[in-house]
Structure formats: C-alpha cells, structure tokens
Design a protein around this nucleic acid. Structure first.
Lengths: 129, 129
DNA sequence: TCCAGTAGTTCGTAACTTATGAACTATGGA
DNA sequence: TCCATAGTTCATAAGTTACGAACTACTGGA
C-alpha cells in the first residue's frame, strides 16, 4: 500500500543558491513560479496547459515538488486541492534580488520570443531544457 | 582518428536564461566563473583543485565547455593553453543584473558556510548538486 | 456508510545527463 | 624528431528526469 509522505518545506537557512538556480532553470518551473507570483494560491491543475503544450499531471506534480523542495514555494492542502504560494519575501531576504532578477530575465526573454514569433510564421520551436 | 571540434561560442542573442541558470547552478562551475571574473585569462589547469576537492581534468574540461556553450565565457587557445574570460559585459547587457546577482548570492552563501565551518569542527560537508 | 468524482502523489521504467578514466589531439621547445 | 604540457574526446557507469498507470486523500451526495 502506497504511503503519501508529508510535504517538505526546507527552512529558509537550508535554501541554497544552487537549488534555486536549478529549480528556475527549467522553463516550465519558471513559468509556474511566474504565475504563482501574480496569482497566489493557484493549484496544480491551473497549470495543466502551460505555454502551448500539455503537461502530464504527474510531471507537473514533480515540478511543484522541485519548487517546494528548493524552498521557492509553499504548498498547503485545502480540501481536495493544493494551494501554492511563493516564499518570495523570505527568499529575497536571504538572497536579495536573486529571484526577482531571474524572473525579470525570463520575462525579457519571453517577450523577445513572442516578438520573433509574430514576425516569422513558424520559427523552429525554441528548444526546451 | 579523433577529431578536435571547434569551440562553440553562441552569439549573445542565442544565450538563454535557462542556459545561464543551469550552468551556474553547479557549484564547481559557479566557482570557476567567480574566479574568472577576478583573474581574467585563467586556464583550465588553474582550477584542478577547487574548494577542497580534486576535480579530474576531463570533468573540468566539460565544465568549461558548459560555461562556454551557455555563453558565459569565451575561451581562446594561446599556444598550448586555453585562456578563459567572462563575457560579463555582453551578458549583462542582455540580462541586466542577472549574473552579478547570482554571483553575489553564491558569495553570500559561501561566506555563511565558511562561518559555520569555523564554529563547528567538521560539520557534514554540504551536499553538492 | 458507501460510492463516485476531483485533485494530486507515487511507482516503475525508459530516456536523457553527467562524471570520469583512458586514449587521444594540439602545440611548443630541445 | 621526440618529449612534455594542456586540454579534448570517447565509452560507460552512475545519476536524474519525464510520464503512464495505479494509487491516496478528500468531498459531497445518495
């Protein structure tokens, strides 16, 4: 019988730069984090469709876990669903500007790609990971 | 017969945030980058011993390649050795503050660890990757 | 209390990445 | 030409990630 282990939220002193960079180096996770930053409390299934491709539920679940265990988000069960919020204040206190700057860079890049895509018709889908 | 392929330096528009974060999410690569930032032109073998552990030459070579192909450094052959320099100006122009902030965070963390190590005698070597 | 539905997790495994020793290339000097 | 030095490539073992299938956990009826 499968057990459901408790969610792991590292305490802020245990959060590492390596961990944060690794977590946010994945475009799907960066997109999730970006969305959580504006719509706090969003659930896993709010993300089933991200950036023009369907992501399997199990994969998404792993991505949330990665963000959680890197210390970037906090997840709480509310009834049947899992509400997620960023830990941005804590993290920003520990590593000032880090996450904000990373997310800005991601945004800069997303804007560039959007522009490129409106110019050319179908420009060789940008390689993931 | 083994061929030696030409070094790949992506043009600055092809440098991605994902790539940068991934490259700098490895502590060895972050240490190399940090060192290059202060001692420009350093060679691969200057790094054979980094942060208390010996790193094999082949592994180091791959790390330099990763940094190079992420667009973070430029490598040029000078005689028998390979001189490496950061591409920090270009990269900073493309993603303002990104690399600087990441390196600051790494430094903050390194300082913390150093402090912790001087307090306790041998405190369970911090897990890599 | 049982059942169905919804939300998310875990497991197994296939696909991909990374680390490293051994063998190589490339260059310069004797 | 031969040797030494610096770094690269290859093969492969070890580690990581993605994803379908099967599960847990919870809620709201009947």
């Amino acid at each position: 019988m499968l057990r459901m282990r408790p969610l792991i939220h590292p305490s802020i002193e245990d959060v590492t730069v390596e961990g944060i960079l690794h977590a946010l180096s994945d475009p799907v996770r960066a997109a999730i984090y970006a969305e959580l930053a504006v719509s706090s409390g969003a659930t896993c299934s709010n993300f089933l469709k991200i950036s023009d491709r369907e992501i399997p539920k199990s994969t998404l679940s792993q991505h949330f876990r990665a963000l959680r265990e890197a210390g970037l988000i906090r997840s709480e069960r509310h009834g049947v669903e899992m509400r997620n919020t960023t830990r941005c204040e804590e993290v920003n206190q520990r590593f000032p500007g880090l996450v904000v700057t990373i997310m800005q860079a991601h945004q800069t890049q997303a804007a560039e790609r959007l522009q490129a895509n409106t110019r050319k018709p179908s420009p060789r889908k940008t390689k993931a990971r």
